[in-house]
């Protein structure tokens, strides 16, 4: 609450925002909804000399359909994503994931870009994007680049974004016909940070898995895809998911005040099975 005063800069364009970030040379933080940054400032965990407000930059919000994808602006608020008809139709996993974020107030203010750029390894949206193989559009005001969602987070609260870069948009492939999805998380209370979250998309036919993608959040320094599980699932009958998904080994959970590493391991197994089962059921139903 007793924060050290900082400056406030409002950017009206991406170019201006990136220029301001360069001007402050690493001492400024980007603020959009502020739902991750301001709690950290209030708790004294970060102490910027300025915040650069990008929330009023025009053209960076909303969902648009383009070919086989949805283009989602970085400033799209969680609440908008939650109620968006295109998202509901073409990528229901994303709609479900965003419903699990925080509380009503957080979803009112919080933005997609903010959540992705924050780099919280337990967050729902980076996990969803990783499993959905989304791509992020990133700009420094002069040049843009595209980064795969799975490559974007590096470690705890650290991403590939350079100090003068902004995440401006996300391209999410539509869920192809015949695929099903699953999303589950365990949090200590509704709206709390996930202890572990899991997401999957699967294509099943005739009671067997043809193709599967499954990922977890809250079990490593960043969201992880369980690639060896995915490979092992190909051709497996739905009834045998439990046999294939045993102890999940590609993770490095930690112990904190919310849960122990051991419990996170248990949840990794339980939730991976659950999201796969749900996804298979939806896939079969979609046929």
């Amino acid at each position: 609450m007793f924060v050290k005063p900082f400056r406030y800069e409002r950017a009206s364009s991406v170019t201006e925002a990136c220029a301001l970030l360069r001007e402050y040379d690493g001492e400024a933080k980007v603020i959009a909804g502020g739902q991750s940054l301001l709690p950290m400032i209030n708790l004294g965990l970060v102490d910027p000399s300025a915040v650069v407000d990008i929330s009023r930059i025009a053209g960076l919000d909303g969902v648009a359909e383009r070919n086989g994808s949805l283009d989602v602006g970085a400033l799209t608020r969680h609440r908008a994503l939650e109620g968006d008809a295109l998202v509901a139709r073409h990528q229901p996993l994303l709609a479900e994931a965003v419903r699990s974020v925080g509380n009503t107030r957080v979803r009112n203010r919080g933005t997609l870009g903010g959540s992705l750029a924050h780099g919280d390894p337990a967050a729902e949206l980076p996990l969803a994007m990783t499993v959905l193989e989304a791509e992020y559009e990133v700009s420094n005001g002069n040049a843009t680049r595209t980064i795969a969602a799975g490559e974007f987070p590096l470690t705890y609260f650290t991403t590939q974004l350079a100090e003068d870069e902004l995440l401006t948009g996300v391209r999410v492939p539509k869920l192809p016909a015949g695929w099903g999805w699953g999303f589950h998380e365990v949090s200590r209370r509704p709206g709390d940070f996930a202890v572990v979250a899991a997401a999957a998309v699967v294509r099943c036919r005739g009671g067997a898995i043809e193709d599967a993608r499954v990922g977890l959040a809250g079990v490593s320094e960043r969201p992880v895809r369980l690639t060896s599980v995915e490979a092992a699932l190909a051709g497996v009958p739905v009834s045998q998911i439990e046999d294939v998904v045993g102890e999940v080994d590609a993770i490095e959970p930690i112990t904190d005040t919310m849960a122990s590493a051991g419990y996170r391991r248990r949840l990794a197994r339980v939730l991976a099975r659950r999201v796969l089962a749900d996804a298979c059921q939806r896939s079969e139903g979609a046929d």
Partner: peptide, 24 residues
């Protein structure tokens, strides 16, 4: 629970000290 680790208080805020919500 106020979690202590060798005398260091690990419970720094309401995001860590979990009192029941209406939904719990």
């Amino acid at each position: 629970e106020v979690v202590m680790q060798e005398g260091v208080n690990m419970t720094g805020g309401f995001f860590q000290y979990l009192i029941p919500t209406a939904a719990d």
